Amino acid sequence: MLEVNSDQSIGQLLRSTLDEHSLSMRKLSELTDIDTSTISRIINDKRKATLDHLEKFSSVLAIPLAKLLEADGYSVIPEKKSSSEYDATIEQLVNTSDLLSTKLSLAQVESQLADYEDYAKTTEGKQRILYEFTEKLKAAGGIGPFADQMKKLFTRFKTQKGNTRELAIIGSALLYFIVPVDVIPDYLFAVGYLDDAVAVQIASNVLVKKS
């Protein structure tokens, strides 16, 4: 289960922020293009906000997106989490339709991974992985369970440890991380690299099933 890391619920946080800015739910609806009834249900803790909702609230109300995620009950992935906690969090996110709806579609991630499997088999794809991975990882922070998983996959790909199908699956996850075409932009680790983490989880699950 995802941890709730905020003392305030999403409804309490939004309500207090609206009060501070003297904004009504109707006005927030106009500014965010989210139906007033939906905002009311979120504020009254009768439904969970989607990532799309949270991004709009963040933009309009100047609330850090990470704070909104925590208030809505999602565990923002810290760099020092253990690998087991990290894997459990990503697994939960993979199965959390509220967060994955709209902005992050598993079907989109899986479709992109399938395309990258073929690309990973080409000379160009292999060279891109070998020459661009280190710099992209450095740009992503280079530490933490997510980085550790990526490094292990890269080492396995670089040393060609696996059969053709396994290496194509590993290559697809690495290319998803490297190529700057994401379901979610890489502007914030906790959210921007969420689809990359999900892609790694999907690829890892396939590898486990095949072993």
Score class of each variant (00 low, 15 high):
23 L>F: 04
129 I>T: 08
79 E>H: 10
130 L>T: 06
83 S>Q: 14
28 L>R: 09
152 K>Y: 11
29 S>H: 01
77 I>W: 04
48 K>G: 08
41 R>P: 00
8 Q>I: 10
191 V>A: 09
103 K>A: 04
56 K>S: 10
167 L>I: 02
57 F>V: 06
138 K>G: 02
117 E>I: 02
49 A>D: 10
131 Y>K: 14
34 I>P: 04
82 S>A: 09
138 K>C: 01
7 D>V: 11
32 T>G: 00
103 K>F: 00
40 S>M: 03
73 G>H: 08
84 S>A: 13
25 M>W: 08
139 A>V: 12
196 D>S: 14
73 G>D: 10
102 T>M: 09
166 E>T: 01
140 A>H: 12
90 I>A: 06
205 N>P: 00
143 I>C: 04
96 T>V: 05
93 L>G: 09
94 V>G: 04
137 L>Q: 10
172 S>M: 07
74 Y>T: 04
131 Y>R: 12
152 K>S: 14
145 P>T: 03
88 A>N: 11
77 I>N: 03
149 Q>H: 15
202 I>Q: 13
146 F>Q: 12
92 Q>M: 09
207 L>R: 06
168 A>K: 00
98 D>E: 14
93 L>R: 11
207 L>P: 01
51 L>R: 06
4 V>H: 12
123 T>F: 12
108 Q>N: 15
97 S>T: 15
43 I>K: 08
3 E>K: 15
36 T>C: 05
90 I>K: 07
155 T>H: 13
32 T>H: 01
6 S>F: 07
154 F>M: 07
198 V>C: 08
91 E>H: 11
133 F>I: 06
84 S>W: 05
104 L>C: 15
147 A>Y: 02
44 N>H: 05
150 M>K: 10
70 E>I: 03
197 A>G: 15
40 S>I: 02
51 L>Y: 06
154 F>L: 11
136 K>W: 09
122 T>K: 06
89 T>A: 13
104 L>G: 01
70 E>D: 11
105 S>Y: 13
103 K>I: 07
211 S>C: 08
107 A>S: 13
